[in-house]
Structure formats: structure tokens, C-alpha cells
Amino acid sequence: MASKVVSFTLNGRETEVMVKPLTTLQVVLREQLGHTATKTGCRQGGCGSCTVLLNGEPVLSCLLPAEDVAGQQVTTLEGLTPIDGLHPVQRAFFDHYAVQCGYCSPGMILTTKALLDRNPTPSREEIVEAISGNICRCTGYTAIIEAVEAAAQALKGGQNGR
């Protein structure tokens, strides 16, 4: 069977792309649309580095056929970054040294965004549970948890990332 046209909303923009049967959203984003903030860590659903938001919910783009997202809203880290400055979650990660090698950061930041959208004042335990699917092999978890707490504070204070 030939490729199909798949239409979905990527970071607020209507996007059409030709996909071969069962191509993953991860491959479409990275190789066809040049959105490389979405990383490739394991392609087994185990590391969380390919996390994107599907209708605001975190999902693993390595296990998601692109055709399955037709008509839906996909957000990648590219879509979170404002025109200038940083989103409060990004700012908190930067300020709190919650990045080391940087490979888990896009997935970690998107998961944090999704968490704070649902639960603006998460406990430490709730943060740990929420990010447990995003593996940081540099083991910078303490700084990451502090960054999530700081981001929650900043968002509560109404900072909008400018």
C-alpha cells in the first residue's frame, strides 16, 4: 500500500504529511518535519525521551503510528518555546541546573508541563510519580524535582515565560 496523507495539528499549525504504513510519529516528527527536540532513546517506550503531548496528554511517539494522530493536537518542545525567552518550565529547568547531557530534557519538560496543567501544586511524591517514565541517566533527579517545584511556583505567580 502506498503512503497516505495524514493531517494533524502540530504546535498549533495545521500540518499535512505523507507517511508510509505504520511509520511512527517520532520518525515523522524528526525525519520528515525536522522537529528533532523529540528524541530517540530506546524506541521501546522505556525512556520517555520521545514524549510528546497528544491533546495535552503525554504519550510516547516511538510507539505511536502517525496515522493514529490524524485530526488531533500534537505538541512538541518546539511548540512550548515562546518567540522570545523561555516557558516558565524551561526557565526553571535552566535556572535549577536540571539539565546535564540534555537528552532527557525535552521529554522531561513536556511531562512537567502536562503535570502542572492538571495539578498546579503537586507534592514531591506526585512529581516523582509523574516523571517516573522519563529516565535521566545522568541521575540529576534532585535538580529536576526542584525545577518542577520552582516551575509550579512561577506558574502560580502568573509568569508567562517572557
Partner: peptide
């Protein structure tokens, strides 16, 4: 959900011709 099958296909451990989601 694809969390079992896609993983195995990504590794080349499962090479189906046709798939139904």
C-alpha cells in the same frame, strides 16, 4: 495501544506485512 507490538517491530524482532490498529 501498540506498546507491545511497536516495540518489537522497532527492534526488527517482529516483521509483519500487515498490521491492524
Amino acid at each position: 495501544g501498540g506498546t507491545i507490538a511497536m516495540m518489537r517491530m522497532n527492534e526488527g524482532h517482529l516483521l509483519p506485512d500487515q498490521v491492524m490498529g
